[in-house]
Amino acid sequence: MKVSSTIRRNHRKVRRITAASGVLLLLSGSVSAEKPDRFDGTISSARSMAMGGAFSPLADDITALVINPAGLVNTGGVVFYGDYLETGGGAGPWEGKLFGGVERWGIVFGAAGSRKSYDGGTAESQLSTGFAIDVLSGSAGSFISVGGALRWGRVSFELEEGCVPCGVSPGRYSYDALTADLGMMIRPLPFISLSASMENISETGFGSGDYYIPWDRTVRYGAAWLYEDRFTVSWERRHEGERNTDHFGFGLRTAVPLEIMAGMTSERVYGGARWDGNRWRVSAVFGQEAEDVISAGASVEIFFNRPARIYQ
């Protein structure tokens, strides 16, 4: 494929900006979690964080929209969700998300907006919309569902000093990204859940719209075991670029509607608790982002016409 010289120039410019911003961010030294040097499509919901990221085969709340859209079928009626996560006791980035979902004509639709803000004015915003549908459903709780989602994201950042060798002047910059996500969930038995999902990211890049980076892909697949509606074990493998990570999580429901969750990936521990009322759910979660850096957050879900089929 022949790439035009304009595209190459734009490509180099974006690289210079991102490299310069990365250097400045490192020099600032006040951020505990990594800032994105490009669009980071990964979103961690409260439950996903508490399960150590092993959420794709469960995907049992509205945040499935941005992790495995096929899991939207586990919601129903009308649902609203909001969460807030903070890193390093406020010293690191924070993020907030709002989700909404509704079921019509046997299809579950979802929409979401989120913003993750770092020190120094860097921010990543996303708008998402998607759907899921049961393509096959058994009488005892088994089903096969598929789903899809589109997400638009924008990373904006401030360059206070610019980079003379790079030819980048100070100012505020941003670039956009688009993701197209696909997901599938299979429950051959009510207590076994298998999943596969893909997140395809295309960045439109800085400035002109004619620059693009070829689609980048994150693939998730995993399995979960749901025992007696009380105990959940979940595993997910995430393939990003040339990197594979395994995520493990479990959740256990007590007699009162309290679920304790814990997870691990790369020997980092995550956990949390979720109280499940009839019309609402609240969670408090934490995750180990790095050594000596803890993220913590909380979420609230509100249901209207919540169907009985919802698992957990």
Binding site: A262, G263, M264, V269, E291, D292, I294
Partner: peptide, 14 residues
């Protein structure tokens, strides 16, 4: 059975 342990924000065990 299983357990997970985060020690002092730094070290994780399982």
């Amino acid at each position: 059975g299983g357990s997970m342990y985060l020690e002092r924000s730094v070290r994780g065990f399982y």
